[in-house]
Design a binder for these strands. Structure first.
Length: 434
RNA sequence: GGAGAGGUGGCCGAGUGGUCGAAGGCGACCGCUUGCUAAGCGGUUGUACGGGUAACACCGUACCGUGGGUUCAAAUCCCACCCUCUCCGCCA
């Protein structure tokens, strides 16, 4: 990849989703418009006001401090020459006190400024549609000459999951995979990891599933703090997705242009409290507090994010194609996209029993939003330093994939045909429950 | 969890409360040189915020693990915390 100097004066970059304070004060109207697309209630005017105050204060403080420094140096000189400095010291004391006072005021205003900025969601990409839009479909829905069962029924019939045990052991909305169910999960994990590491060139990572608040915040997930599990005795959170772990892989580091794109994949359990979702679809594996997922993350050059995005999307689609599951790709509206995302496409798989599309993957460009937050920077070949784009996508989430497999591959005799691609990972089994 | 040692610029590594953004070395970059050897010589070499500029230049401030404190002045003193290493304990 050649050296690509970034001209920050071009509209391309200014329109780009980044919450650089400078962009806010240079293009307040643009930012207002973009935030409105997300229905974000945060006031740009307040940010601008605080920013102005902050800059004014800093100028004052810097001047004062400059004077103080010079006065102190003068005292040092006197002392070295063994001259009396008590008068100068007394005078400088006042200056010092004033400087400190301004320091205090400035840090207050800076804290407020940062607080406001941290609350801002990422700005939507111009390509994000106003309404969720299906942009393509793949495969065809299976047809049955019998009434297809839903996955809960199938799981119970074939002993693939033990929901009763999971509920009494951990609580409602947990799942325990048993027997061939557990094997099926493991097979899917291996299929996905093998595919992404061997065919798609991702480096596998097995990260901690506990993260500091700082890390979760960098990912943008503290904005939905109420949806994360917190530990009682340590300032740690159970990650809601391995995106949290992977996007922080280079926190406070410089990455090099020549190493791009950096591609990582991780398989982890993911934990979500799902607060506020009671009463919605609660059956079986559809929405559970702990679920397993293989995640894909790429660090990309800001000018090449779309290539990375499309690649992750096709990497995730490949899983469904291998499993021959019908799916559709949907471009999300800015109001549907996650806090940290500027552009998001979902992949929904068809589930014949539920007769519904289930979201199994969500691919997002977070632009430089997360990189700014965790201080991952990109050193270009020309020596300049910018923020990389960070993109992520599930590749894929398993409970819903399992739902789709069980429901779409069910046979008249109640057994489940194992998709061809999965057989090498399932002891060659052709059917479950036969 | 207990005891001890330590955290300085891309890396290694000095550092006396004042002349330290920080010696020295390495690396990198630029230039020069070049009949000797992947050699020699000179120079350059951080980031953030603010000001300034058409853009550079330039100016100010901050940054020596993090946050406080003492002081006219802190990398240097004090306190708390974090992290790393060694030893002990515990343990898959």
């Amino acid at each position: 990849m050649g050296c690509v100097p970034v001209d920050i004066s071009t509209p391309f970059i200014i329109l780009y989703p980044m919450i650089d304070p400078r962009k806010i004060r240079e293009n307040p109207d643009e930012i207002r418009k973009l935030l409105a697309r997300r229905r974000c209630p945060i006031s740009v005017d307040e940010i601008l006001a605080v920013d102005e105050k902050r800059r004014k204060l800093q100028a004052e403080r810097d001047t004062l401090r400059h004077d103080l420094k010079q006065a102190s140096d003068a005292i040092g000189k006197l002392k070295r020459e063994s001259k009396d400095a008590s008068e100068a010291m007394a005078k400088t004391k006042e200056l010092s006190a004033k400087t400190k006072e301004l320091d205090g005021k400035l840090s207050e205003i800076e804290a407020r400024f940062e607080e406001l900025l941290w609350q801002l969601p990422n700005l939507p990409d111009p390509d994000a549609p106003d309404e969720d839009t299906v942009i393509r479909s793949w495969g065809s829905k299976p047809e049955f000459d019998f009434q297809p069962a839903d996955h809960v029924t199938i799981c119970e019939r074939l002993g693939l999951c033990d929901f009763r045990y999971a509920a009494s052991y951990a609580g409602a909305r947990f799942a325990a995979y048993t027997g061939d169910g557990a094997l099926l999960l493991r097979a899917l994990v291996n299929l996905c990891l093998d595919l992404h590491t061997r065919e798609h060139g991702y480096k596998e990572v097995f990260p901690p599933v506990l993260a500091r608040a700082e890390s979760a915040n960098a990912a943008g997930q503290l904005s939905k703090l109420e949806d994360m599990y917190a530990l009682a005795d340590d300032p740690l959170y159970l990650i809601p997705t391995s995106e949290t772990a992977l996007i922080n892989l280079h926190m406070r580091q410089e990455i090099k242009e020549e190493d791009l794109p950096l591609k990582y994949t991780a398989y982890t359990s993911c934990f979500r409290r799902e607060a506020g979702t009671y009463g919605t679809q609660t059956k079986g594996l559809f929405r559970i507090h702990q679920f397993e997922k293989v995640e894909l993350v790429q660090f990309a050059h800001p000018e090449h994010w779309r290539e990375a995005f499309d690649e992750i999307l096709s990497n995730a689609e490949k899983v469904l194609q291998l499993l021959e599951l019908p799916y559709r790709v949907k471009a999300l509206s800015p109001t549907e996209a996650a806090f940290q995302a500027s552009l998001t496409f979902d992949i929904d798989v068809w589930a014949a029993g539920a007769e519904d599309w289930l979201e199994v993957s969500s691919i997002s460009n977070c632009a430089d939003f997360q990189a700014r937050r965790n201080k991952t920077r990109l050193r270009l070949a020309d020596g300049s330093l910018i923020y990389p784009h960070i993109l992520n996508g599930s590749g894929t989430a398993f409970p819903r994939l399992i739902i789709a497999i069980l429901e779409n591959y069910q046979q008249a005799d109640g057994s489940i045909k194992v998709p061809d691609a999965l057989r090498p990972y399932m002891d060659g089994k052709e059917h479950l429950g036969r």
